[in-house]
Computed example of a mutant assay.
Amino acid sequence: MTETSALAEWIFEQMADAAIYADRSGAIVRWNQAAATLFGHSAAEALGQNLDLIIPERLRPAHWRGFEAAMSSGVTRTHGRATLTSAMHKEGRKLYVEMTFALVVDTDGKTCGSVAVARDVTARVEHERDVARHGGAV
């Protein structure tokens, strides 16, 4: 392993935010420690699994339409902007996460897969909903 590739590995693994790389088929290839903490699945449990592992069932059809469109067109709908979405923890509880997505392209310009970086915003979203429900009296 070169010094540069070792550094890239250390950065990926030690990021504070969850980082997930999935190949063109949607299989999880990389899953950092922050992803394990956020979603409750160890890397050993997540690697090789489909992204449905963390996608709520009701969101799966829309996710896969967008994923497949991005893989074939080479363009994401969000263009790197953070997106608030729902996700699932291993224990079945609902999470709210802000995610950014990027396509990973090889030196020939071929899309290899997608990387997502996620941050848990569950507490913030639930607080905002409580405030909205109770007219600011939380």
Score class of each variant (00 low, 15 high):
W10V: 06
W10G: 00
W10A: 13
I11E: 14
I11N: 01
I11R: 10
Q14G: 03
A16P: 07
D17Y: 11
D17R: 10
A19C: 10
A19F: 05
A22E: 07
D23I: 15
D23M: 14
D23T: 05
R24S: 11
R24F: 10
R24M: 03
S25I: 02
G26M: 07
A27F: 06
I28E: 02
V29F: 03
V29M: 10
V29D: 01
N32V: 07
N32I: 15
Q33C: 06
A35T: 05
A36C: 15
L38N: 08
G40L: 06
G40M: 09
H41Q: 15
S42I: 01
S42D: 08
A43Q: 10
A44E: 14
E45P: 05
A46L: 08
A46W: 00
A46M: 01
G48Y: 01
G48W: 06
Q49M: 08
L51R: 14
L51Q: 11
L51Y: 01
I54W: 05
I55P: 01
P56K: 13
P56I: 03
L59G: 03
L59H: 14
R60T: 11
P61W: 05
A62K: 08
A62D: 07
R65P: 02
F67D: 01
A70W: 07
M71W: 03
S72M: 05
G74W: 11
G74D: 11
T76L: 06
T78Y: 08
T78H: 03
T78D: 12
H79E: 14
A82I: 04
T83C: 12
L84E: 10
L84T: 08
L84Q: 09
T85H: 06
S86E: 15
A87N: 15
M88E: 09
M88R: 13
H89T: 05
K90V: 04
K90F: 09
E91P: 00
L95E: 11
Y96L: 00
Y96M: 10
Y96E: 09
V97M: 07
M99T: 10
L103G: 10
L103Y: 13
V105Q: 04
V105H: 01
T107C: 00
D108S: 13
D108A: 07
G109C: 08
G109A: 12
C112R: 13
G113A: 12
V115R: 04
A116C: 05
